[in-house]
């Protein structure tokens, strides 16, 4: 990090992003969308469906990210995460995901359970705060007991071509997480616009992450979020990085996954791209809130043969 990005640019042709894309390879939009569409034609029945639903439940980061969140709301979310629907043997979710101010409340509520507390830090969702401030936010969340930190990259820096700066910031957040917390790096794919850029950004992040850290699609705060196609681009990047380095990076699509059917399609993509080892909540997560009740509804239906009314399932969070 001794060479300033501007100096580097003056000595090599083309933008930093273009050079990175050349290095990690381009993505054809039509092709990747066709590949993704094939997952939607899979038909998952009976035992496979029950396994898929339960696995998906165990991968949910049950999320509430609203200005009106209170310790009480977070406490009820935590109970839902620990006991989504015990009547059908639904496993607990992987984690709850809250704003940093509510980490302590969440930590107390999930004490003694397997449910982790994740917190969106680094001036979520825009990331437009000084690095010093963002790092302080991360340190405070970790100090309050967060097991996982969901950071946003500075898309502005990325689009301006300051890739090294983006990567340095991620590395700095990794250090701020210490050994106590895993990191999830939100690329905010809808603001990167192209699949080429999503693949490049995935590599940029993975190269400074630790095994078991995540790359994540979205904040859920923009108009378009996780899709099967951008999930595909990112899990292919994870696959290539793993085969190259042996470092397994985890994946979290977030936002826009509202139905069990969608969740199963994402899992099919994981099964057929990354294989068995990623069908586990240490390697794959869903950032969602409305999704959980649809997974439960389908799980009850598999058991009873009938769809239950929505009010049968406890409300714990509004959609995101």
């Amino acid at each position: 990090m001794t060479i300033a990005p501007s100096a580097l640019r003056s000595r090599t042709r083309g933008s930093a992003l273009r050079r990175l894309i050349d290095e990690v390879g381009p993505v054809d939009a039509v092709g990747v969308e066709e590949r993704a569409a094939k997952y939607t034609t899979r038909s998952i029945k009976k035992g496979s469906k029950v396994w898929g639903l339960k696995t998906a439940i165990s991968m949910v980061d049950l999320t509430t990210l609203e200005g009106k969140d209170t310790p009480g709301k977070v406490a009820s979310l935590c109970v839902k995460a620990m006991h989504p629907h015990d009547e059908v043997g639904a496993p607990p979710t992987a984690a709850v995901c809250v704003y940093p101010a509510l980490v302590a409340a969440a930590k107390a509520a999930v004490a003694g359970s397997s449910v982790k507390v994740a917190s969106v830090a680094t001036a979520f969702p825009s990331g437009q705060a000084p690095l010093k401030t963002r790092l302080a936010e991360v340190r405070q969340a970790v100090a309050d007991g967060a097991d996982e930190i969901d950071m946003v990259i500075q898309r502005g820096l990325f689009l301006a071509g300051e890739l090294n700066a983006v990567q340095d910031e991620i590395a700095a957040v990794v250090e701020a997480c210490t050994e106590a917390a895993r990191l999830k790096v939100i690329l905010e794919v809808s603001e990167l616009e192209t699949y080429d850029a999503i693949r490049a950004a995935s590599f940029l992040a993975m190269r400074v992450l630790r095994p078991g850290d995540f790359i994540k699609t979205s904040t859920g705060k923009t108009s378009s979020n996780a899709t099967l196609a951008n999930n595909q681009v990112m899990i292919e990047a994870i696959r290539d990085f793993y085969l190259e380095t042996g470092v397994p990076i985890s994946m979290k699509p977030a936002g826009g996954i509202r139905t069990a059917k969608q969740a199963l399609q994402f899992l099919i993509a994981v099964k057929e791209t990354l294989g068995d080892e990623w069908l586990d909540n240490t390697r794959y997560r869903f950032g969602a809130s409305a999704l959980l009740n649809d997974l439960l509804r389908q799980l009850v239906k598999e058991k009873t043969g009938a769809y239950q009314a929505p009010y049968i399932f406890s409300e714990a969070a509004e959609s995101y």
Binding site: V24, G25, L243, L279
Partner: peptide, 24 residues
């Protein structure tokens, strides 16, 4: 392109039977 060369002992993906699709 910085992509991998095959080596023995290299990390490999596992496409096993963790999640079988039942007949549809």
């Amino acid at each position: 392109n910085g992509r991998p060369k095959p080596r023995s002992g290299q990390p490999e993906l596992v496409f096993g039977d963790r999640w079988e699709y039942e007949p549809a």
